[in-house]
Amino acid sequence: MSSGTGVERTEPGAAQGSAAVDTAHELDLYRRMLLIRRFEEQVYLLYLRGEIPGTLHQSQGQEAVAVGVCDVLQRTDWITSTHRPHGHALAKGVDLRAAMAELFGKATGCCGGKGGSMHLGDPSVGMLPAIAIVGGGNTVVTGLGLAFKLMKTDQVVVCFFGDGASNEGAFHEGLNFAAVQHLPIVFACENNLYGASTPFHQTSLVPDVASRAPAYGVRGEIVDGMDVLAVREAAGRAVAEARTGAGPVLLEFKTYRFAGHSRGDVRGYRSRDEEAEWKERDPIVRLRERLAVSLSEVVLDNTDAQVEAALDDAVEFARQSPLPRAEDALTGAYATVIGKESTP
């Protein structure tokens, strides 16, 4: 529905009852969201145990956005992601074992151990190594869109970014350039209300990122990011527009990260009441309840068990995988080194 400002707002729950996907498809959406949730929970424990080096930015609570958006993409479509990329990677189809091994810093990781948590990605499934500079993807994504336009393919690219990125110059330059070139891009803002610890309302006088879209001649839409079916429906429309040359589109998903910004964040900047309110809207719990109407508990429990088994397998794979060769750190920065092929 139109709010009269050029920004549309899909009411929470509007997609409930939509017949856009059948029960088997809904069950698959549930399975994929649960996989992300359990992946995040598992890797946090593995991190605490010292098996995963570095740091982690986790996406518990935001699974519906990753899964709902990527569900309407083709394998040949692309996404760009952020410092919080685990969910996007798994949703776009990065191999679970290779993703886990990458977090472990193993040679079998999807980036050979050179990327790690913040640069998870795999070009073979249409995901750039995640760009961990806030707003960094918002300009690079225009080049993917421009290439698809120049090569006359019907591919689209989705740029995931957070509310924090919307105050970066890159957000504005990328959106304006994409608009003026009519590029096949969906800008997908995950507004989880906080840039690290700072509330979005302290950083912007306009409460909705989507309301910036009309200023660039772009359609903006606010979507319930805690409802995977609503996400899927809005993303489906936006991707279809982008694919047919009517893009770009800016979607703003209102969502919430249940975890802290990164490891060791005790979330002192937000109230437990607020967290409880959002957890009431847990996208995985909501979809499970909806599925329980038509499916037996046994079917759902079996799905949960499949997810656990896949994760156990991935963790074991990562543990057993070899470390990268130390000397490989010194190669791979260049495609050609004074006429010699580098061996990444």
């Binding site: 690079v140 080049g143 993917l144 421009l146 290439a147």
Partner: peptide
């Protein structure tokens, strides 16, 4: 400039 550089980089990543 950020858009120009970003567009060039992104297009190059796609083979242009």
């Amino acid at each position: 400039e950020k858009a120009i550089a970003g567009a060039a980089i992104g297009a190059a990543l796609m083979g242009m």
